[in-house]
Design a protein around this nucleic acid. Structure first.
Lengths: 145, 145
DNA sequence: GCGTGATTACTCGGATACAAGATGTCCGAGTTTGAGCGG
DNA sequence: CCGCTCAAACTCGGACATCTTGTATCCGAGTAATCACGC
């Protein structure tokens, strides 16, 4: 796990997508406008979320993105893993082959990372999207089609 | 907090420095040899540990590094903070100025990061250096001066 | 034998080169909707 | 009024260009121990 700007874009975008009413979708452009971000780059990030099964995309003229059926209870960790992959934050590439096959430090870092992941796994996107201000919710409702 | 190769170098080096007997020091070259790492780069990392007060350096012909007096109970987190700084792993640079002054996502990421840091704070370097193999310990004892 | 200077073996810091990966842009392709146009 | 075609509005994917940052090297400076030399 690691954090880049893409992570930030993805999490914020997910907040908005979670507010899209059932049966409707929202396009990249309004999402990019709300976040003040390049639409082309954001679309690349959304593609990763699609492949992970978190959201679905409908092509065509009135196309856009919406939550997938199983995406209702998506956690922070799910989004992060979809965008950044599941590689370990810390990676020891030394050769301590003699006695200990795997690095003691690596083991400890993995445990620490797991503490963080457990916390992010317990936090759901939908819980937070509800806390958004009414102005944000109205904005999404206006743009959803 | 973040993890780079420098973190890895620092943690491994600290294991060895922790084994140096009282009154003696160990130079950059033997440390770099043991880790198969560039001595000049390693010295830059050690300089950061010196400034953080974790180790002390003695210049001159028989100079080198050793644990500082207060460095006996150094934790993993102390070393990481010294090397990488204390900046947050996740940094939201969006403007949600309207209603919420600080980002809800940022708050959650900070909490998650804190879980990890708490774990790393509780792990001490000295506890691990003792678990090293005897061959490693002998190596350090031979090189310490 | 003893002080004084030179040499050596180190750490320290800045400047700089190099590499990798994140960030962002461009363009072409596929897909669906809707409008226009001819029969 | 029907059906066909074409244009428009989207997502998708690959191939780039750019920019940031970690990684590594080089060189000069400072410092302390040791050695050499002359008195």
């Amino acid at each position: 796990m690691k954090f880049t700007k893409a992570t930030n874009y993805a999490l914020h975008t997910m907040m908005y997508i979670a507010l899209v009413p059932a049966g409707k979708v929202i396009g990249v452009k309004p999402l990019a406008d709300m976040l003040q971000v390049s639409p082309t780059y954001l679309s690349k990030i959304l593609t990763r979320l699609v492949k992970a099964g978190i959201i679905v995309s409908t092509p065509g003229v009135h196309g856009g993105y919406k939550l997938s059926k199983s995406g209702k209870e998506v956690s922070f960790l799910d989004v992060i893993h979809a965008v950044e992959g599941t590689a370990s934050l810390f990676q020891c590439e030394f050769e301590h082959g003699e006695a200990s096959p795997l690095c003691l430090i690596q083991q400890e870092m993995n445990e620490a990372e797991k503490k963080m992941e457990d916390h992010l796994q317990s936090k759901k996107i939908s819980d937070f999207s509800e806390k958004l201000g009414d102005s944000m919710k109205d904005l999404v409702l206006r743009e959803a089609k």
